[in-house]
């Protein structure tokens, strides 16, 4: 596989993490009392847009390689999400959360390897 393949995989994961961060940001805005609707509409549209880009990029990757090869990269998404949410949304990371994330990533890698 070429360097480009890995760049596109990382880009698709970045779209996924970015899309979810925008959706969470939109949900936070709707929770804030007195916020006008437009404040949450923009991040919501950005979130949907990035998730759409992720979907088509992932679909294209699936057409290029076997699912069993691509699946382990998808299993890394909880790790990317942990870094993304702690940096962009300032969410607290606890030892419990890191432990759970590592177990999920490990479990998903084993499921991927069993294909």
């Amino acid at each position: 596989m070429t360097v480009w393949f890995f760049i596109i995989v990382i880009l698709s994961q970045a779209f996924l993490v970015g899309g979810q961060i925008f959706l969470k940001h939109a949900m936070n805005k709707t929770e804030e009392a007195g916020t006008d609707r437009r404040a949450s509409t923009f991040p919501f549209i950005c979130g949907i847009g990035l998730m759409t880009l992720w979907f088509f990029l992932w679909f294209w990757l699936l057409s290029q390689v076997e699912l069993s090869y691509l699946y382990p990269f998808d299993a890394l998404s909880p790790l990317f999400m942990a870094f993304g949410a702690s940096i962009a949304l300032k969410e607290k990371m606890t030892p419990h959360l890191w432990g759970g994330i590592l177990l999920i990533v490990g479990g998903l890698l084993i499921v991927g390897a069993s294909q």
């Binding site: 606890t94 419990h96 959360l97 432990g99 759970g100 994330i101 590592l102 177990l103 999920i104 990533v105 490990g106 479990g107 998903l108 890698l109 084993i110 499921v111 991927g112 390897a113 069993s114």
Partner: peptide, 22 residues
């Protein structure tokens, strides 16, 4: 579901429980 896959699913479940426990 192969035994290896069942083991992976069990580890994912353990991870979810670790996060949910607090």
């Amino acid at each position: 579901i192969s035994p290896i896959r069942a083991a992976g699913i069990g580890i994912v479940l353990l991870g979810v429980l670790v996060i949910a426990e607090p």
